[in-house]
């Protein structure tokens, strides 16, 4: 008898769950997998949520998970989101994108804060689209214009030190490109790779032998701008950074994209897919809607760098 009752209980539970799911037909379940707690990634997630919430209001439900920087957590959370049968997954940064892409071949996956989809997914982009259930936004600020910026601000510079974390695929990709552009301008580049925050200070110290230092959108550097500033400012070596956060902490100038903007853009793409039935596999990878030349007023004054008029000061 006991068994029967418990079986009935389970049955009602399952049925009510099904009924619940049926009644809420217009609710969109959106899973978010963010790689690590980090100001830029947080901004992208915020932009994504705000854009979708503005359009869908209460009919969108978010499941937001953070892998806390541990790679194996990405697979755990990805399989959890797939099991939950969410309608769409937003993968914030490269390892989540890779884990989610492998976890599902059906649920649309939108990446953001990913620099290069081609190397992250090992696919050829056709018309900027992946051809599989993946699309999204890139956090790449045009690297040729960043190289231009170095020459514009520091025409005298002969050597540029490229400072980055050897463990970050995105940084290596950018370093390679910037190096090509600078070499094309006849500027010599030297690579200074650190492995983590522990040897960052000593590697930065070595890099001050160059005339200018360039830092890409490197997560480790972004988390340690104070440490970098304490070395480069006294050494009077200007830093050109790949994103605003790094520039704010230790840089002179940057070509800035806003992570909030690309998050929002990703949210708009999600809306197209969820509501208007757009096909994710033919959606082109989107870039930041606007790029702004920015400078760090305090650091520029400190090092006596003259900033052209078309640069905007970074707000506090």
């Amino acid at each position: 008898m006991k068994k029967l009752i418990s079986m009935l209980a389970v049955l009602t539970l399952i049925l009510s769950v099904c009924a619940f799911a049926g009644a809420e037909g217009t609710t969109y379940q959106v899973g978010i997998l963010q790689f690590v707690q980090h100001p830029a990634l947080d901004e992208a997630t915020r932009g994504f949520r705000e854009a979708l919430t503005e359009k869908l209001g209460d009919s969108v439900v978010f499941t937001e998970e953070n892998a806390s920087g541990e790679v194996p957590n990405c697979a755990t959370i990805a399989s959890q989101l797939v099991a939950k049968q969410v309608n769409l997954i937003m993968a914030n940064a490269t390892p989540p994108l890779q884990a989610c892409t492998n976890a599902t071949g059906d649920i649309p996956v939108l990446g953001t804060s990913v620099t290069d989809y081609q190397s992250a997914l090992e696919i050829e982009l056709v018309n900027d689209a992946t051809g599989i259930n993946v699309s999204g936004t890139s956090d790449l600020a045009p690297l040729d214009r960043q190289a231009e910026m170095i020459r514009e601000l520091f025409p005298e510079a002969k050597t540029v030190g490229l400072l980055y974390c050897s463990g970050e695929a995105n940084s290596i990709f950018q370093i390679k490109k910037v190096e090509e552009y600078l070499a094309g301008m006849g500027i010599e580049c030297k690579r200074y790779a650190f492995t983590d925050s522990n040897d960052l200070a000593s590697v930065t110290q070595t890099a001050t032998e160059c005339d200018v230092i360039y830092i890409p959108t490197d997560n480790t550097a972004a988390n340690n701008t104070e440490a970098i500033a304490n070395i480069v400012i006294p050494a009077k070596v200007p830093v050109v950074a790949g994103e605003e956060g790094i520039c704010k902490g230790c840089g002179i100038a940057t070509l800035s994209i806003s992570y909030y903007d690309i998050g929002r853009k990703t949210g708009e793409m999600a809306y197209e897919i969820l509501v208007n039935g757009a096909d994710v596999s033919t959606m082109p990878i989107a870039y930041a809607p606007q790029v702004v030349k920015e400078y760090n007023a305090a650091n520029a004054a400190e090092l006596g760098v003259v900033i052209p008029e078309d640069y905007l000061p970074i707000g506090e």
Partner: peptide, 26 residues
Amino acid sequence: DLGSRANVPLSINKYKNMLVSLRNVG
């Protein structure tokens, strides 16, 4: 050409004969 890489993708879409994959777990 760089001789060092932080991340190597192994997409199930491309390497279909991989021993195990998150894709099929459900």
